[in-house]
C-alpha cells in the first residue's frame, strides 16, 4: 500500500530534484532549524509551481496555490515521518490543496456569470442638446408673447444674465416682484412651448 492517496493523473509526479536531501532538511526543520526550513521551502518552490501548472490552474492562481501548500505544510509538519521519502508526502499535501483550489474555482465559475453585452451599462443620454434654428425662433416668439413685465424680467435675468440687483436698478421693479415675474414667465413659456 504505497500508492499516493489521491489519484489525480495530472498530479501524480513526485520526483524530487536530486541536489537537495529534502527528507534531511525536513527532519532538521522538525527539530526547529529555521535555516534548514528556509532552504527546504525555497528549494521546493519550482516543484510546487510545476505541480500547480500541471494541474491546470490559471497562471494567476499558481502562486496563491503554492502559498497555500506552504502554509499547510507548515501546519502539519509534525506529521512527516523522516524515515519515509519526503517528495511523496509533499506531493500528497500539494495535491489536496491544489484540488481544493480547483474545486473552489469551479464553484466560483458556476456561481458567477461573465458580463455580456446586454448587462453592460449603457451610456447615459446626452444632457446638452444643441438648439436648432426652429427652436430658437419658437422661443423668441413665445417670449414676445409674454406680458411686458414678465418679458422684461426674462430678458434681463435669463437672456442678459443680469443679477436681481442690476435688473431691479435697470427696470425700477423691486427684487421680489422680479422674482415673481420670472417665475410666472417661465411657467407661461413652458405652457406655450408645450402647446406647440
Amino acid at each position: 500500500m504505497t500508492a499516493p492517496a489521491n489519484q489525480d493523473p495530472d498530479l501524480r509526479s513526485t520526483e524530487a530534484p536530486p541536489e537537495l536531501d529534502w527528507s534531511a532538511l525536513m527532519a532538521q526543520s522538525q527539530e526547529g532549524d529555521g535555516q534548514a526550513y528556509r532552504r527546504l521551502l525555497q528549494s521546493i518552490l519550482p516543484y510546487l509551481r510545476a505541480l500547480a501548472r500541471r494541474a491546470g490552474l490559471p497562471a494567476d492562481e499558481v502562486e496563491d496555490a503554492v502559498q497555500d501548500v506552504l502554509i499547510t505544510l507548515h501546519s502539519i509538519r509534525h506529521s512527516y515521518d523522516p524515515a519515509r521519502p519526503f517528495a511523496p508526502w509533499l506531493a500528497a499535501v500539494a495535491r489536496h490543496r491544489i484540488i481544493d483550489r480547483r474545486r473552489r474555482l469551479l464553484r466560483k465559475a458556476l456561481r458567477e456569470r461573465p458580463m455580456d453585452s446586454e448587462t453592460e451599462t449603457l451610456p447615459a443620454p446626452p444632457t446638452y442638446l444643441p438648439e436648432t434654428a426652429g427652436e430658437i425662433r419658437r422661443m423668441k416668439a413665445a417670449i414676445a408673447a409674454l406680458p411686458k413685465g414678465q418679458r422684461q424680467a426674462i430678458e434681463m435675468l435669463k437672456l442678459k444674465e443680469m443679477s436681481l440687483k442690476e435688473a431691479s436698478a435697470a427696470s425700477g421693479q423691486s427684487i421680489s416682484s422680479l422674482k415673481v415675474a420670472v417665475h410666472r414667465a417661465v411657467k407661461r413659456l413652458r405652457s406655450l412651448l408645450a402647446e406647440d
Binding site: Q30, D33, G34, Q35, L41, H74, H78, S79
Partner: peptide, 11 residues
C-alpha cells in the same frame, strides 16, 4: 514561516 521556528513533536 521559517523565522523563530520551534521544534515539533513528531507523530
Amino acid at each position: 514561516l521559517s523565522a523563530g521556528l520551534t521544534p515539533v513533536a513528531r507523530l
